[in-house]
Design a protein around this nucleic acid. Structure first.
Lengths: 187, 187
DNA sequence: CGCTATATACCTACCATTAGGTAGTCGCAG
DNA sequence: CTGCGACTACCTAATGGTAGGTATATAGCG
């Protein structure tokens, strides 16, 4: 039971954070969402800092696994990149939520240093994975015009997160699609 | 005098919002920053919604003017795009602040519909300007490989905002530079 | 000119609500 | 009969916002 409640809390918190930002949801909101009393949340997550750290840990793990799955299911670089774009597109939830990482960066000042470090780690992981994709592309020629894999990787991560913002700004996935259209066309 | 205080409040609010997000600053913070009593702020901005609307109005006007200045000082497309990149880079303030627009989108749910509309208007303005730059590039060949000006514009805006996030995430402007390196190389 | 009226730009003193967090209690499964 | 996983009942600080007062400046007018 403890695990179920904990997971439910993380789910609700992630949903809320991605929709409203770190400062945009409270323990009271989570309590109502999960069907538990506000004070009981402190049993699972003593402080909001603990909660957000757990949130980042899980997000990191899930995304890492998702990247591994993409690798397993796609041999060529182009397929991998297309799959990542699709992953980010799905994360939008019709323009109602954004990447946890993006949301946390905006509220950086409210975060514990612990969480800040986890954000850095997450970005490093994604950049490393993307760099490998572009290195592969330089060989298999699956993506057009790849010259500098690491710069491509950083640009792609920025583009995807920026496209999230664009879509969220107008609650319209089409904004995401237009922003990534050229990248997609290179695959 | 009224104008001075009002401007000081907008300055403090913009700085705070760009550093900590919409939900990350309070009237109390502004009061201390400006040297006025908290309640007096309501004289200038009855509600926080009014404040944020004024903030977006000013931001929109300032950026529009900045784009016009860029146009006046640069004839070729490449120069204009380089200047915009420099503008966004400067807005980072060494990785401590982000674009107002990005920050407001994250806290979208806390915003009044009024402000949401202003965000859309701001993005439309920037996209239109960028589209013109890329249309010009298609003629003067100042930027490499421009095929679809509007998609280039949307991708560029997303990239710049994403690069802001990258830099803010680690409080390091170098992250911005790496993310925009390939775009810069095309100029 | 002097006298009133109004508006400006602040102030002090509150308000209700919500924030994250704490202390201590209790039912119940092992 | 112990300890998990909840609960009730609080707490303090902070939130955005309101009510009403006040010093100063300006405008209208006889």
């Amino acid at each position: 039971m403890t695990q179920e409640t904990r997971t439910a809390l993380l789910d609700a918190a992630e949903q809320a954070a991605r929709a409203r930002g770190f400062d945009g949801f409270s323990y009271a909101d989570l309590a109502e969402a999960v069907g538990i009393r506000k004070a009981s949340i402190h049993y699972h997550f003593p402080s909001k800092a603990d909660l957000s750290a757990a949130l980042m840990d899980r997000y990191h793990a899930v995304m890492q696994q998702a990247c591994a799955d993409i690798d397993a299911q796609n041999d060529v670089s182009a397929g991998r990149l297309r799959a990542l774009i699709a992953l980010y597109r799905a994360a939008l939830n019709e323009g109602t939520t954004m990447c946890l990482c993006v949301v946390f960066v905006t509220g950086r000042e409210s975060l514990s240093p612990d969480v800040t470090a986890k954000i850095t780690a997450f970005r490093a992981m994604m950049t490393a994975w993307l760099t490998k994709v572009f290195e592969r592309a330089a060989k298999d020629r699956g993506i057009i015009g790849v010259a500098h894999p690491q710069h491509e990787a950083r640009a792609t991560l920025a583009l995807l997160e920026g496209a999230h913002i664009a879509a969220r700004a107008e609650e319209d996935v089409a904004q995401f699609d237009e922003a990534v259209a050229l990248l997609q066309a290179r695959c």
